[in-house]
Design a protein around this nucleic acid. Structure first.
Length: 888
RNA sequence: GGGCGCAUAGCUCAGCGGUAGAGCGCCUGCCUUACAAGCAGGAUGUCACUGGUUCGAUCCCAGUUGUGCCCACCA
């Protein structure tokens, strides 16, 4: 029977809501292989042109909002982005289909240090520095850079299929967002939550700026712990030995500290000793911070170059002696002046060694050293005046919002990480000595006045007034992102409609940097959490679970895989690996497998179209359907419910898995195969199956669409004639279930599989027709004889039929004429093996059922189940023994 | 130094009190007119180790070993 004759469906009078008149897709419309490149770009542009992703603040529909974690303007798409974007896109696409006013808001972060470094590097290649240009020209240059090279990632997002609302794209340095920054700064300043203080901060001598604690990355570095003898033998106080890994700071020592209870040094407390290489004497102070058990129990104290020493200095009123400049060059007078800190370190140790003051060296001494997260330079603790945010009250509110359930963290186990942070947060250094960023809105007057200026206020004018030269930490503006992007501080329709956002999808690695700060600002500014749910994702790793890094050489450009296998394949693979909060390994073979799945869906739909599958008209009455139709519809509705459940739980791996198995193992491998017999026979049953097959594919494509938007769009529009699956409705569980049909088909599957196994064991060619006599009377298989014959390539038992093999399957008997001797040994082997398994099962279940304790204490349904298993094992054994006997 | 997590098939991971699962890989046979990016069949696990709780433990508890991550002011 030709496909053309089967494709004609004309008797339906009712159109489905999506249908655009009589629909006449033909298999010719679809090539035999899915080629992503042919459709992806075209479809994306169509979606954008039609405005599907543009949200309407005036809509009556309930809102669903996700703001994108703004990628750095310097960034390009990596697998981590592709991963998170896939999840966010799937969430918003589904909600859009469900009838929500879905907004996924895109944008970028100006990424202060990163961007400034990039442009400085570019200048460097021209032999110039930012100082050569001057501040204004430099910032101008950064803007030009941003226009020219920045935002590469936005184009890449289109490749991925991100359904973002481009009309609402934002940038943290936009006029509007800058106004939000200034407004918040002013408010916090007025509330006493922002203050200026001179403290030890983390200083990057290369970037020449302060950075916050979390921007410091600690590494185990090789160092040298040297023990230095301070003081003079002849002196009254004598000598003490201190240990240090940073000998160069000794030039700035202003004390030696010992523990107050340390008997060894009690006599020294209050005395002064000579500081080597200088003409100074320094006091010995008692401070309980000192651990008497470490080293000699004596600590050199350098209040201007070490945070602990700074605290000790404060407690003992020690002078702060700065001996290095902002580039880490020694400024103290003497032979070391002008040396870089590392040169100075060896020079000073050498000089002290010459004086016999270096007692003992431990080398290598591995210890934890802080590095700038942006450039890797060793951090220099540095005394300086900076702006700070007083975080305690903000962090408390941020913690409470999660504690009292207003914000849920997924998976819940990750909450501890969040609490650890917000409950122990130190004040936040927000000023940066950079030029690219939001300038601190504070003016200093000639008389020492300090004025914080709001966005609608004029800065003080006149002689001697100048603005603070520093800019704000990038995370200050990104912390405002969930509301600044919606127009705050204005009470915009967007803000009214779309705040608070629904879910924040981001990596667990960014909880401290970003999540906690958005929570703090959201609670403080909006008095409402910025999102209802925080869905934390893991990191993308390579196929062996190893971190992707340039040094390992295992970094993959997602665009390469999208080129080779399509965006859908990449997305499906990422979604399939997305178990909440866990890292996601990905390998090229897996992407290939996802591509194969897309192609399978493609071809199954082609088959359906060739055979006249349709979505037109209402579904036939179940009473009119064959068990196969009722079975697949029952399963379909179960899958709809299952997928919905997984979405609510952000279980992307589970829902992807469930859909793949349903589509491939059930719809394609069984329903479609069974439908071939129905179509071949024609008549009303074929019509019913055409409609059911259309329904099943329609719904399955909708269910798959959020994760694999391109192939589903192409197929769905072809199948249904609908405008776009993007704006089609999300399937709802109709409640239709048919347990009898499910059991019946399970029996068919079992029987068919059993005979197939026999055929394979007998070495029969898959296509080889075998005469067979089927005795199916009184079994669930009865209605499926034709399908069973078709699937198993069995032909009617004709003249001279000889039942050389007789298989009991599912209560029925299938007799085959193998035209000669069957392979007795192969069959005996198989049966013996099955028999052993059945006997083992019988022994196990039997043992349980004779166990009094089990019978007394196990719940009834468990006991019942074991009884069932025992009966099944007994039946299997009887059947297998009978077969073995027949073999002789 | 603290805290958290993980150890299940060759690889990557689900499962987490009642018969061990998936994807990829592997073996066998097939171009069966939707698909070889496919079809059919198959093999594979002392569920890290040692105890404990339980009628019953991969699953709960304790300890051991291995491994990963986060935090911390180890001079």
């Amino acid at each position: 029977m030709g496909a053309r004759t089967l494709a004609v469906v004309t008797d339906n009078t009712q159109q489905s809501p999506e249908a655009n008149g009589p629909h006449s897709a033909t298999p010719a419309d679809l090539p035999t292989q899915y080629t992503p490149a042919d459709v992806e770009g075209k479809l994306y542009e169509r979606w954008v042109e039609r405005g599907y992703f543009e949200a309407d603040a005036k809509s009556e529909k309930p809102p669903y909002t996700i703001v994108i974690p703004p990628p750095n303007v310097t960034g390009s798409l990596h697998l981590g982005h592709a991963f998170q974007h896939t999840l966010m896109d799937a969430l918003t696409r589904r909600k859009r289909m469900q009838g929500y006013e879905a907004l996924w808001l895109p944008g970028m972060d100006h990424a202060g240090i990163a961007t400034q470094n990039k442009v400085e590097q570019q200048l460097g290649e021209e032999g110039r520095s930012r100082q050569d240009l001057g501040r204004e020209a430099f910032v101008e240059r950064v803007w030009r850079w941003k226009e020219e090279y920045g935002g590469k990632i936005l184009g890449q997002m289109r490749r991925l299929g991100d359904g973002v609302d481009w009309s609402r794209e934002r940038f943290t340095m936009d006029e509007g967002l800058s106004r939000a920054v200034q407004t918040v700064f002013k408010k916090m300043y007025d509330d006493g939550l922002i203050y200026r203080a001179e403290r030890i901060i983390n200083w990057c001598p290369r970037c020449l700026t302060a950075i916050s604690d979390i921007e410091v990355e600690y590494q185990e570095d090789d160092g040298e712990l040297v023990q230095l003898k301070y003081g003079e033998d002849g002196d009254g106080a004598g000598t003490v030995v201190v240990a240090t890994t940073r000998a160069e700071t000794m030039l700035g020592d202003t004390a030696v500290a010992v523990h107050p209870d340390d008997e060894r040094y009690r006599h020294l407390i209050g005395k002064r000793i000579k500081l080597p290489l200088t003409d100074r004497t320094i006091p010995v102070v008692a401070d309980s911070h000192v651990d008497p058990g470490f080293g000699t129990g004596c600590v050199k104290v350098t209040p201007a170059h070490d945070p602990n020493d700074f605290e000790i200095g404060r407690r003992h009123d020690l002078p702060l002696l700065t001996v290095m400049d902002e580039r880490g060059v020694i400024t103290a007078h003497g032979p070391f002046q002008g040396l870089d800190r590392f040169e100075a370190r060896s020079a000073i140790v050498a000089a002290l060694r010459e004086q016999g003051r270096v007692l003992e060296e431990k080398r290598p001494y591995v210890h934890s050293v802080g590095h700038c997260s942006r450039c890797g330079t060793t951090i220099e603790p540095r005394l300086s005046m900076q702006w700070w945010v007083k975080v305690t009250p903000l962090a408390e509110a941020a913690g409470d919002a999660v504690r009292d359930g207003r914000v849920k963290i997924h998976p819940a186990e990750m909450s501890s990480r969040y609490f650890d942070w917000v409950d122990n947060m130190h004040d936040w250094t927000i000023s940066r000595q950079l030029w690219w960023g939001h300038r601190i809105p504070v003016w200093y007057g000639p008389e020492g006045e300090v004025v914080c200026v709001g966005p609608d206020e004029e800065p003080p004018a006149g002689e001697g007034w100048r603005q603070d030269p520093d800019v704000l930490d990038t995370w200050f503006s990104s912390g405002l992102w969930p509301f600044s992007t919606l127009g705050w501080p204005d009470r915009t329709p967007d803000l009214e409609k779309f705040y608070a956002t629904d879910v924040l999808v981001t990596g667990y690695d960014i909880i401290f940097f970003w999540v906690a700060r958005m929570m703090m600002f959201g609670m403080y500014v909006m008095e409402e959490p910025p999102f209802h749910t925080i869905a934390l994702t893991g990191l993308v790793r390579d196929e062996h679970g190893k971190k992707m890094s340039k040094s390992f050489g295992n970094v993959v450009d997602p665009l390469d895989w999208m080129d080779a296998y399509g965006s859908d394949a990449l997305r499906f693979t990422l979604a399939s690996g997305a178990n909440p909060g866990t890292d996601v390994p990905i390998g090229e073979d897996w992407v290939k497998a996802s591509r194969n799945f897309a192609n399978k869906v493609w071809n199954a739909t082609r088959f359906a179209l060739m055979n006249g599958a349709t979505v037109a008209g209402p579904l036939p009455d179940p009473a009119e359907m064959a068990a196969t139709d009722r079975w697949i519809l029952s399963r379909l509705n179960e899958v709809v419910a299952e997928v919905d459940g997984y979405y609510e739980d952000y279980q992307f791996a589970k829902l992807s898995d469930a859909l793949r198995h349903f589509a491939w193992d059930e719809v394609f491998d069984w329903y479609v195969e069974l439908s071939k017999t129905t179509f071949a026979k024609g008549g009303r049953p074929a019509e019913v199956t055409r409609r059911v097959l259309g329904e099943v594919l329609d719904v399955t494509l909708r269910l798959l669409h959020p994760v694999v938007p391109f192939v589903t769009e192409e197929l769905w529009t072809t199948l249904t004639g609908g405008e776009s699956v993007v704006v089609a409705g999300w399937p709802a569980d109709s409640g239709f279930r048919d347990a009898d049909a499910e059991r019946e088909i399970a029996t068919v599957q079992q029987a068919v599989t059993e005979v197939r196994r026999f055929r394979a064991d007998q070495g029969l060619q898959p296509g080889q027709k075998v005469p067979a006599d089927l005795d199916l009377a009184g079994t669930a298989l009865m209605a499926h004889e034709d399908a069973i014959r078709q699937l198993l390539r069995l032909q009617p038992a004709g003249e001279g039929f000889q039942a050389t093999a007789s298989l009991p399957v599912a209560g029925a008997t299938v007799s085959l004429d193998l035209s000669g001797a069957i392979d007795v040994e192969a069959e005996r082997k198989r049966l013996t093996k099955d028999l052993a398994a059945a006997e083992k099962e019988l022994a196990q279940t039997g043992a349980k059922l004779t166990n009094e304790a089990f019978l007394a204490k196990a719940p009834e349904h468990v006991v019942e189940k074991i009884r069932g298993r025992k009966a099944a094992a007994e039946a299997d054994i009887a059947r297998l023994q009978q077969q073995l006997e027949r073999l002789g």
